[in-house]
Design a protein around this nucleic acid. Structure first.
Lengths: 185, 185
DNA sequence: CCCAGAGGGTTTACAATGTCAAGATAAGAT
DNA sequence: ATCTTATCTTGACATTGTAAACCCTCTGGG
């Protein structure tokens, strides 16, 4: 379905779908274009080239990422202890990386390219982590706690990318929760 | 200098040099072969193809990585507190990632491919971290502490890949050291 | 002495990729 | 009605990884 009238949107969706289904190495400009039902040169007109399309996909990825984390945060009861909320979101972080490996890698690859729009979108996820860390900054500088939590979670996710996690068990990331506890209190 | 008589070695060296000088996107089988002074089909004879050559490069990368970490460890005085030794090596970890970004990315990309030789080589670096963590496992399970330190350090390195660090200042990674302290004691 | 075979490299060919230039097509504006 | 502009296609090109066929050069057995 070519989705005429909104080709950029269709291309981003096709690219992410291709990434989810066939992995990073199967991603190519021509395949994305074919999937969106247009010629291989069409993407250049909207994104300049493959790099541009990839950053657009990364931006969309960070939006979905933040949405995923927020859903996890909102799923924990309002009267639950703050640490449970933090660890649940961290678990969601790792789970996202495990379930959507290709997109996750693309996101943080492109992040190094320092596109302003991309950075702005990624900031949203950071602010979410920041908010969850707030209850745990006692006298310490907030940035230190946030960096610790963010780095720990991201490192855990990155190092376990080869082991995709099932979507039902919480046990998989218990080591991460333990490590978070070490940092927090 | 074609380095006749040991082409596999020459190819790995050429590939890593290309990675260090021109970055990930400039890495190609044909360029590596040209740099080693052979035809573009020669690598296939020894490594089967580009994937094989890349895992060989990743193995060499982990060897250099471990060597880099060990050098940092041995540079701190023998009577220094264990935490200083740990934080110094963690600093070296981040510095390696910042200075040799392309190789670092390749290493952990290929790690997901689960090549036995590569895993065995990478294990050496893990054992080094493990050894440095030993003084800090009080009653806690050792694996938890190691995973925490390793994940935190790796995450910090990965998230700061775009900001290459100067080789002289220790200040850059003070946030990491603070976070490590949070974990350790 | 010679020559058969094998390992190491080259040459050639091929399909796939990203990018660019030129053209086609349709919708609006003047 | 004609011009313009955005959108997309077509065609071409250089570069890439891979595979097959060929060619050297050395070594070991007769």
């Amino acid at each position: 379905m070519p989705t005429r009238g909104n080709l950029p949107e269709a291309l981003v969706q096709a690219g992410i779908a291709l990434l989810d289904e066939d992995g990073t190495e199967a991603l190519s400009l021509r395949r994305i274009a074919a999937r969106a039902g247009v010629s291989h040169a069409a993407p250049a007109h909207h994104f300049g080239g493959l790099p541009g399309l990839k950053t657009a996909m990364a931006i969309r990825g960070f939006q979905q990422f933040q949405q995923h984390l927020m859903a996890a945060r909102d799923a924990v009861p309002a009267d639950a202890p703050p640490f449970q909320r933090l660890s649940t979101v961290a678990d969601a972080y790792v789970r996202f990386a495990g379930m959507r490996t290709g997109l996750f890698q693309l996101m943080f690859d492109q992040l190094a390219a320092s596109d302003p729009d991309l950075l702005h979108t990624a900031l949203g996820s950071y602010l979410l982590i920041k908010e969850l860390c707030a209850p745990f900054v006692d006298g310490r500088p907030a940035v230190a706690v946030e960096t610790a939590v963010w780095s720990l979670t991201h490192g855990y996710a990155a190092l376990n990318l080869d082991r995709p996690r099932p979507s039902d068990t919480q046990v998989a990331t218990s080591a991460l929760v333990d490590a978070l506890r070490l940092i927090i209190d």
